[in-house]
Simulated assay, not measured.
Amino acid sequence: MNETTTTSTPSRIRAVLADDERLMREQLRSRLTEVWPELDIVAEGKNGLEAVDLVREHKPDLVFLDIRMPGLTGVDAARQIAQLPDQGDDDEWLVPEIVFITAYDQYAVEAFEQGVADYVLKPAERERLQVTVQRIKKRLAQRQDNADAAPESGGGGNSNAAPLQQLLHKLSAQLNPGGKPAYLQWIQATVGQAIQMIPVEDVLFFISDEKYTRVQTATLEALIRKPIKELVDELDPALFWQIHRSTLVNVKAIAGVTRDFRGRQLVGVKGNNEKLEVSRSYTHLFKGM
């Protein structure tokens, strides 16, 4: 990881760059310096997890992400980055612009056609990078115009967040061989005053109320602002069963199913004393158990 020591001014654009190949990071940084000398690359990361942490720390305007990185892909890192403003207390910070670094043109074309992200094909050629820089400058200027036009709305809002998440979900599915969806491997959640990365396999269950979803493991309880209807699409259905419109349970954590005096099915969970109600629509899951 390498951070520049250049002092930023409010007019300068700040960027984070993440690629697991050091030579690719150096090449992209060098080319960006040539075509966009006023850009501040405030931090660099070697993988997706580092990228998420660096974005949370520096709150950049722009993020360059290699699509394929170990631990957490660039696409999954972008999905987490798109949620960060909703989890913090900085109402002025918007979802940063995303530029994917990729050797796979099929992903890049879809990203550009959606209009919510851009791409640079490896190796980063100067002429193509200039096109990306102009697009990003234009989008950042439009964002600033929207913020200036509606200051009372908290900076114009994260209007690109929803379409960006939809695109990232599609790209994540494409990254997996055979077209199988790339399910979430980590949950980024609030624990007290801190943000913590929780492995999905450690989660016993998710329960939502109107505003938050509780993430329960054997050792901690955390909160996220992602509704159950989104988690259903992002989690492996072989590992997590929906048993109620507000509840998902880890199949491996199910200790047994009982009935209460009203005949309702209740799921017992290993490592937790809580009983989870099964709604009528999902009772078929436990037939024969």
Rank of each mutant, 00 (worst) to 15 (best):
residue 5 T to E: 12
residue 6 T to E: 12
residue 9 T to W: 06
residue 13 I to F: 06
residue 24 M to N: 10
residue 27 Q to F: 04
residue 27 Q to I: 10
residue 32 L to V: 07
residue 34 E to S: 13
residue 35 V to W: 05
residue 35 V to D: 07
residue 35 V to Q: 02
residue 36 W to R: 08
residue 47 N to P: 06
residue 49 L to Q: 11
residue 50 E to R: 00
residue 53 D to A: 14
residue 54 L to V: 05
residue 81 I to W: 00
residue 85 P to V: 06
residue 85 P to C: 10
residue 89 D to C: 04
residue 90 D to G: 02
residue 95 V to S: 03
residue 98 I to T: 07
residue 107 Y to I: 04
residue 107 Y to A: 01
residue 113 E to T: 13
residue 113 E to H: 13
residue 116 V to E: 03
residue 118 D to A: 09
residue 126 R to I: 11
residue 130 Q to G: 05
residue 131 V to C: 03
residue 132 T to Y: 01
residue 133 V to W: 06
residue 140 L to A: 07
residue 142 Q to D: 15
residue 144 Q to R: 15
residue 146 N to D: 15
residue 147 A to S: 10
residue 150 A to Q: 12
residue 153 S to P: 00
residue 153 S to K: 10
residue 155 G to E: 07
residue 166 Q to H: 11
residue 167 L to F: 02
residue 168 L to Y: 03
residue 172 S to C: 06
residue 174 Q to T: 02
residue 174 Q to Y: 03
residue 174 Q to G: 05
residue 176 N to Y: 04
residue 179 G to A: 02
residue 187 I to F: 15
residue 188 Q to I: 07
residue 188 Q to W: 15
residue 196 Q to P: 07
residue 200 V to E: 02
residue 204 L to A: 08
residue 208 S to H: 04
residue 210 E to Y: 09
residue 216 Q to T: 15
residue 218 A to P: 02
residue 224 I to S: 08
residue 231 L to Y: 09
residue 236 D to P: 06
residue 237 P to T: 04
residue 237 P to L: 08
residue 239 L to V: 13
residue 239 L to W: 13
residue 242 Q to F: 00
residue 243 I to N: 09
residue 247 T to E: 11
residue 248 L to P: 08
residue 249 V to L: 07
residue 250 N to R: 07
residue 251 V to T: 09
residue 257 V to H: 14
residue 259 R to V: 13
residue 260 D to S: 08
residue 264 R to W: 13
residue 267 V to E: 07
residue 281 S to T: 09
residue 287 K to M: 10
residue 287 K to L: 12
residue 288 G to E: 03
